[in-house]
Write a protein that binds this DNA or RNA. Structure first.
Length: 289
DNA sequence: CACTTGACCTGTCCGC
DNA sequence: TGCGGACAGGTCAAGT
């Protein structure tokens, strides 16, 4: 699913598309999509106006005028797609290809706005979730209490970054990067891409990594994720942004899903191994154990 | 305790 | 073409 750059791209799109709109009706498979609902979904959604769209780690927050927020995790295959029916017949409109296709069988929540436009939460694998929580209590849910710092914040330094790993000295570096309580927002794609950039083998123990290597990894993670945000994220399989469009970072990937191709740095064949239970892509020459 | 593995689901791709 | 198995962007609970 969407990692930080993909969720950030969705957030930026949604911010432009839905802030100011008022919800007219909501359809959902409530039991699955709103686990442990802390509020009556109808009562705090219908007639609510959207006042802000935010992101924390890989979670999206849609703040409502009812002082409640929709808290959304897309997990592996979740999508939030906006369809503006008013413009559906305009030639060349980016949503043209989607109109008539949504909702589909992966749609789990449909939000209709008073102007006739819709926001769909689609999720093929059903791992994702939506929660409706009072805005000022969002910070208290388990996920938010556990999650680590945002790596792209301007005041997040290389020293802060290295310090985050001190509690995971015995783990492999890849497992630690993927651990959301260490650093927020990094997933499988950007873990592989940044470890390649820093020339660190993903199976190395955190305790064996030098400070100079942490510095390099810090720089690479920020570089790679900022580049990806710039490119609208990565579409590996089915990620799309709020307008239903794919991201192009995969065109710039150096190792992820490039096994059998040449390392862009040294020409050695990229291989795929398994680390931290995840498919992992490395250059065996640049990244030594 | 710290770390690793399986489970959650559905769809797709690859080898036979 | 059909079928079985492995695998997929994430996160927990359960296991070692």
């Amino acid at each position: 699913m969407p990692e930080l750059p993909e969720v950030e791209t969705v957030k930026r799109g949604l911010f432009k598309l839905v802030v100011g709109k008022t919800i007219k009706s909501v359809l959902s498979d409530t039991a699955r999509s709103f686990p442990n609902a802390t509020a009556d979904v109808e009562q705090f959604l219908v007639n609510a106006k959207i006042i802000d769209v935010r992101r924390r780690a890989k979670v999206l927050l849609i703040d409502l005028s009812t002082k409640y927020s929709l808290v959304i995790h897309l997990k592996m295959t979740g999508q939030l797609v906006f369809v503006d029916k008013v413009e559906r017949f305009a030639a060349g409109h980016p949503n043209d290809s989607l109109v008539g296709q949504l909702p589909d069988k992966s749609t789990r929540v449909s939000i209709e706005f008073t102007d006739g436009s819709h926001l769909y939460f689609n999720d093929q694998r059903k791992f994702g979730w939506v929660r409706l929580i009072p805005t000022d209590e969002v910070q208290n849910i388990d996920f938010m209490k556990r999650v680590g710092p945002e790596p792209l914040e301007a005041d997040f330094t290389a020293n802060d970054f290295a310090k985050c790993f001190e509690k995971r000295l015995g783990a492999t570096i890849k497992a630690a990067i993927l651990d959301q309580s260490v650093i927020a927002g990094v997933g499988n794609i950007y873990a592989d891409e940044s470890l390649w950039g820093a020339k660190i083998h993903p199976a190395r123990k955190v305790g064996s990594i030098f400070k100079s290597e942490f510095n390099k990894l810090y720089t690479e993670i920020r570089l790679v994720m900022n580049l990806s945000i710039d490119k609208g994220g990565s579409t590996n399989r089915n990620y799309v942004n709020a307008e239903g469009k794919k991201g192009s970072y995969m065109d710039f990937a150096r190792v992820f899903r490039r096994e059998g191709l040449e390392c862009p740095r040294c020409g050695t064949e990229i291989i795929k191994i398994r680390v931290a239970g995840r498919g992992t892509h490395i250059c065996p020459n640049c990244q030594k154990c």
